[in-house]
Design a protein around this nucleic acid. Structure first.
Lengths: 222, 222
DNA sequence: GGTGGTAGGTTGCAAATGCAACAAAAATGG
DNA sequence: CCATTTTTGTTGCATTTGCAACCTACCACC
């Protein structure tokens, strides 16, 4: 009966929520927490903007995107959800807050949905798993927080050039001058909240000025 | 000996981390978690940018500010810390991450510092307090996350007018047209990452266009 | 090897913004 | 109540940016 999780065990083990747990412990946990397996076909909405959420999700296969629609109707990509990663975690933790984003499957996907209540509650057996998981979750939250903070750092720069430099600095592994960004140009422009063509223009200028060099999403800081 | 917390009991009870606990339970917890009482005089640095933090703090009296110094040497106000509120929480949860901000006491202040390890660990007595506190903490994290998200929403608007409107919308209690912002003009400009004078100009225009009216930090949306 | 599609670069122009310097108004402290 | 300081508003100007339209390079697919 609980075989349904078996084929995803590798993916589940990679989920940061389960770091430090064995496959068996994870399986136990999923049963004890009444996790559900959900399937979504490409294009299907997983969470709607404005919806209230009480489950957290782990993407088991496929891919999803969180997009935000502003009051004027423009859609912005807010986040990518990839295999083995959590989504709706901070949302569920908000208990009653409305989702600021719409999450949509961009490929046929499956996800493990765990009721938030059972993430918080300890089970009768008083097993140690719950503690580890909560601790892991807190770590995840902290990381997401730092990510947002980093983005804000980029966004608060007043000029495109400064935004770009801040972004590069954030992705720079210490010492290295080569930086590989996880965006294409449009993604990068979106992340920095600037016009794509304005970004291209500025990148060209910066290259000409000799501050940076680049090729696609590979940048060199000089 | 543990009388040192007594005079702050009111403040501690208001701390979101302790919601749902009685005064006695809080006192117990502070002892069991080896909390320390720290005093800071006005102007003193509580946390330095770049420092690694392993305690969370509750401001018991006074006031503090988190400021961020960018690579060009400009200082930005990142957050205000007021009585009974947590600080360094997500930082401590980051375990090993460097503080992106400097926290400085803007008045003579005192704070309760709790080792992060003891926030996570359950004590021998296996008391229920720890669970409540962890749960509260997660709620706090979620709230802070939404705050950041809201700010990003403001920052990603491409025009000053849209930034202002987004900000007002976020602070609007449903139905009401009157919005009271927790900033002065400079604070507001900082939050939105725009020039103060540009903000003033745009606010005047918006008033003239009849979209809003305002007086100090009190705004009316029409 | 052609073809269609997509990502990225370029450019002109109008509009928006940063910046600096100053003016006005309000708060503060004697 | 006056003097001083702080906060807020105003304005001119140079710069930056958004926007739209178009071009080019590259890639996948037949």
């Amino acid at each position: 009966m609980q075989q349904k999780w078996k084929k995803f065990s590798q993916t589940l083990e990679r989920c940061p929520m389960f770091h430090g747990l064995t496959e068996d412990e994870i399986m136990d946990y999923l049963i004890c927490s009444k996790a559900e397996l959900k399937e979504y076909s490409k294009g299907q909405i997983i969470i709607s903007q404005g919806e209230k959420i009480n489950k957290i999700g782990i993407l088991l296969s496929g891919r999803a995107e969180a997009t935000k629609i502003d009051p004027y109707g423009n859609a912005y990509l807010a986040a990518q959800v990839t295999e083995s990663h959590l989504f709706a975690d901070l949302l569920a933790a908000g208990e009653g807050k409305e989702s600021p984003v719409t999450v949509i499957a961009t490929k046929d996907s499956s996800a493990c949905m765990i009721p938030w209540k059972s993430v918080l509650l300890r089970c009768d057996k008083n097993c140690h798993k719950h503690d580890i998981i909560l601790e892991n979750l807190i770590k995840v939250f902290s990381n997401k927080f730092f990510d947002l903070f980093n983005r804000i750092d980029c966004l608060t720069a007043r000029k495109v050039e400064d935004k770009v430099l801040t972004l590069l600095e954030k992705h720079r592994k210490d010492g290295e001058n080569k930086v590989i960004l996880p965006f294409d140009r449009e993604g990068m422009a979106n992340y920095l909240a600037i016009d794509r063509s304005a970004l291209s223009r500025e990148l060209s200028r910066m290259k000409e000025k000799g501050i940076i060099d680049y090729n696609k999403n590979e940048f060199i800081i000089k």
